[in-house]
Write a protein that binds this DNA or RNA. Sequence first.
DNA 1: GTCTATATTAAGATAGAC
DNA 2: GTCTATCTTAATATAGAC
Lengths: 184, 184
Amino acid sequence: MPKDTYIPCLLQLFRQYGYDGATLARISEATGLGKASLYHHFPGGKDEMVQAVMDYLERWLAENVLPSLQGNGTALEKLQRMCDRLSELYEAGRQPCMSATLLLGSARDLFHARVQARYCAWINSVAQVLVDAGLNSTTAQQRGEDMVITIQGSLIVAQGLDNPDIFQRSLQQLPQQLCRNLAT
Amino acid sequence: MPKDTYIPCLLQLFRQYGYDGATLARISEATGLGKASLYHHFPGGKDEMVQAVMDYLERWLAENVLPSLQGNGTALEKLQRMCDRLSELYEAGRQPCMSATLLLGSARDLFHARVQARYCAWINSVAQVLVDAGLNSTTAQQRGEDMVITIQGSLIVAQGLDNPDIFQRSLQQLPQQLCRNLAT
DNA sequence: GTCTATATTAAGATAGAC
DNA sequence: GTCTATCTTAATATAGAC
């Protein structure tokens, strides 16, 4: 089997258990591959597995999330489309975010630079939508940050209260929050 | 030395490295105690260490955060005082939250129930302040949830962007957000 | 591309001296 | 209350057959 086959499975393990908790024993069991086979596909070990998942996620964002911000419609409509895609990615609040899991653990330094770059790109994309809709760039930047804050926070609280609805409610209110005081 | 001496050090390790990443080797080095001494203070091992840190945090919240909600003043003033205390706890955004770190890792099941109870208590306390100020209870509950969402989310994003100012800005805007459309 | 078998290191945990 | 020494298990990783 080509190694791409195992990426969704690896995503699942790393976002649920974190870098340390996703042991080769668990990975072996979940993928159905022996440890030696895993090293055949990923000679760099877990480090390379995480990088491969990040490649996959970056592709997914580039093909699904960012285009929803660039199509037709008002800023509100664009952000609503984006939120629909994010709800898929996080399975309506049932799944944590891998980047958050990696930031909060011993592997932070390994992956921090890449997570930071992705957060920046995402924030800037949302800010650009708001600037195009007439908002000043300082406020637009803040609201881009607020978007990631709300996503990440509601995923944590959904985990903590064991209630995915909290994520869904936050996501549903988010586009209007980001577009408040906007002419369009 | 009494075992309480080591709690702040343990808090630091668990919130930074998580349950798996805070190895006995690291704990031994940071506390200056040998492994056997650690088991003298905490016979239950890391599990008991985390529980002791949670005891400490619950005491800290009960003595610092909750009283700031029960003193004199408007709802806005109460929430501002609470945010000042939280800024101390998270060292102005430079430190992650231990409960989030524990929720996003392999030890989730061990500590989830206790984290859930604390989130609920905290949300209810804030909701009560807003109800007392005239808000209906459904909206007050939602805003209590929004408070934890904003705290947790801004701590994650502060870590991700390596910029604690994001936490400080969110915290500074939070009380007014929670009190919006309020008569008082 | 997958396996069995194994090497190596580090993890959590305990015994018993001081 | 702290230590050294040790045990047991589990972790990452590799060699080499099929």
